[in-house]
């Protein structure tokens, strides 16, 4: 054993910078966050241990509960719609026969995944502006009397964050599903044909069950990602929508960086971490037991 370790010293030397990097820029900040959450914040940094006080303050701040609630609603919306909706284009892509057309559709629906949130919000600010395309069309066909101000209406705030996130990811998720569908042996569908199964039966009894493991994977990725929503909601945040879409991650940023309340913000960050670990843990257990049954 010792001999093997000695023989491989070079490999340890190679991995050392990577492990050192993770320690310095991930584990150490994490520990720092937990440390700061137990400290009283002074102007120049932490000034002393105060135990659970910051956490007590976190849970007695109504804005925190609002932020937790916003995070959960937005995460639920993104996770449910973002997991299920991409099944449609994935199955649809299977039917498209000229290869160039299929690739064209793939490219078009996948592209938003590569765009930054700044660009996405910019694009939709233009299309959904009160004088923009969507409002003009809706007014033209008489569906609405006055233009809807999508980005400054509390009613639309959460649907906008959820909708644009789903739109950004739909192509990505659809391609994951498509790859899974392509691994399905054509023999099975042929056998179903011989048995006289119609298309809806084939989708329900063959395609969807085959897709199920991947749906669970996408569900978990989406859930984890949406619980830490920051960029999207941050860029759509304004005076009128703040109370609907200020997520817990945004709250920690505003309190910690803009208001220098490091203790409270760090405690809120730890709460966010614990909440997301708990939810994803439960989700993992639930999807796993389902898989075994």
């Amino acid at each position: 054993m010792l001999d093997r370790i000695r023989r491989h010293w070079m490999l340890y030397l190679l991995i050392a910078p990577i492990l050192a990097y993770f320690c310095a820029f991930l584990f150490y900040p994490m520990a720092q966050g937990i440390f700061l959450s137990t400290q009283k914040a002074g102007l120049l940094g932490p000034v002393g241990f105060i135990g659970w006080d910051n956490y007590a303050k976190v849970f007695s701040t109504p804005a925190v509960w609002q932020a937790i609630w916003n995070t959960l609603i937005i995460a639920a919306g993104i996770t449910i719609v973002g997991t299920l909706l991409p099944i449609l284009p994935a199955i649809a892509l299977l039917q498209i026969t000229p290869d160039w057309l299929k690739r064209g559709f793939q490219t078009a629906i996948y592209t938003p995944y590569l765009l930054s949130w700044v660009i996405i919000v910019g694009i939709w600010l233009n299309t959904l502006s009160p004088v923009g395309l969507v409002n003009s069309v809706l007014e033209g066909v008489g569906l609405i009397d006055a233009p809807i101000n999508f980005f400054a209406d509390p009613f639309w705030a959460r649907p906008m964050v959820i909708g644009l996130t789903v739109w950004k990811d739909v192509g990505f998720h659809a391609l994951i599903y498509l790859a899974a569908l392509l691994s399905l042996s054509p023999d099975i569908l042929e056998a179903a044909d011989i048995d006289g199964a119609n298309d809806y039966k084939k989708i329900r009894d063959i395609l969807l069950p085959h897709l199920m493991p991947m749906i669970k994977v996408v569900f978990l990725i989406t859930l984890l990602g949406s619980l830490r929503t920051f960029d999207s909601a941050f860029l759509m945040l304004n005076g009128r929508t703040a109370d609907q879409i200020r997520t817990l991650a945004i709250f920690t940023y505003e309190r910690g960086i803009l208001n220098f309340d490091l203790g409270l913000a760090s405690a809120a960050g730890v709460v966010l971490l614990v909440v997301s670990l708990l939810i994803s843990g439960v989700a993992q257990v639930v999807t796993r037991t389902e898989r075994e049954n």
Partner: peptide, 15 residues
């Protein structure tokens, strides 16, 4: 993988 950037924004700034 369990430590996303968005969760440690404030300590990341400090570090």
């Amino acid at each position: 993988l369990t430590i996303p950037t968005q969760v440690i924004l404030v300590p990341l700034f400090v570090v």
